[in-house]
Simulated assay, not measured.
Amino acid sequence: MIPAAFDYQAPTTLDDAVRILADAGEDAKVIAGGQSLLPVLRMRLAAPTVLIDLSRCAELRGVREDGGSLVIGAMTTHYDVQGDHLVREHAALLAMATDTVADPQVRHRGTFGGSLAHADPAGDLLAPALALDCEFVVAGMDGRRTVAANEFFVDYFTTAMAWNEILCEVRVPKYTGWLAHYEKFNRVAQAWSIVGVAAALRVDGSRIAEARVGLTNMASVPVRARGVEDALVGEEATPESIRAAAEHAAEGTSPTADGDGDAEYRTQLAKVLTGRAVTAAMTA
């Protein structure tokens, strides 16, 4: 199907993009890599009056250090996040999760910020961003503001951004030396997660000193598995302690039922995958 007619704008600066969006009104759409929006346009599930293409805004691309954080531009492609040495050194969990996103073609076109702003609960970057306490910097006509990860994701495909705001960068605290793993379960390669688990651990000697665990597709937004984290901290990472901690994985979740599985199935998956993710992180 052919998309409905729209005006096309391709600003070269973030300020221009924000201005164009404000002038265009709520019926405008911002396009990043287009891997989620273009299929929606072709099916006419969205019919924007204006399409604002951010691909020429060079300031929105790249990874840099800023003190104790990494700053990842919203237009940085998945491919560039995958291969960035700063991400792999200081935020290995994000790199591992990005490795599982779709296929090489999508990773070369799709963007880090676009995936997060799309807010699909089955998307593989949301839970890692939540687990790592990322911060989202959004820009509007009144300037920039920062939104914590636990406030950014509001509901299915819904974020805390206003209609006239654009995600410009994501700030990621450094987790240098932490062990990490992203465990994803899907029926076929390159598909969305039925359930995914993002685990990051700081080990002190033989014990787990800190644990951060995020769940993909276990609610309408990514979820922190706080019960798992609490059960792991202070424990030696034995098969028994990991198995016991993983039993808390589904606490506070509200998994949906669909063609891939019902809520009970996803609940069991979350427990199994949490055990696998923690074990893989500890043995990496």
Rank of each mutant, 00 (worst) to 15 (best):
Y8F: 15
Q9M: 11
P11T: 04
D16G: 04
V18Y: 03
R19H: 05
G25K: 07
G25E: 15
D27A: 11
L38C: 12
R44W: 10
A47T: 15
V50T: 15
V50Q: 05
I52W: 13
D53R: 00
S55V: 11
R64F: 11
E65D: 15
E65R: 13
M75G: 09
T77S: 14
H78S: 05
Y79R: 07
H85D: 14
A91G: 10
L93M: 05
L94D: 12
M96A: 12
T100G: 01
T100N: 04
V101Y: 06
P104Y: 06
P104M: 15
Q105S: 03
V106C: 00
A119H: 08
P121Q: 02
D133I: 09
F136K: 03
G143Y: 10
R144P: 01
F152A: 08
V154H: 11
D155P: 09
T158V: 02
A160D: 15
M161R: 08
E165P: 01
I166Q: 03
L167R: 03
E183C: 00
W192A: 06
I194P: 01
A209G: 11
V221R: 02
R226Y: 08
E229R: 13
A231G: 12
E235N: 07
E235F: 00
I242C: 08
R243D: 13
E247Y: 12
A250W: 11
G252H: 03
P255F: 05
A257M: 08
D260E: 03
D260T: 06
D262C: 09
E264W: 08
R266D: 10
V272L: 05
R276D: 11
T279Y: 01
A284D: 07
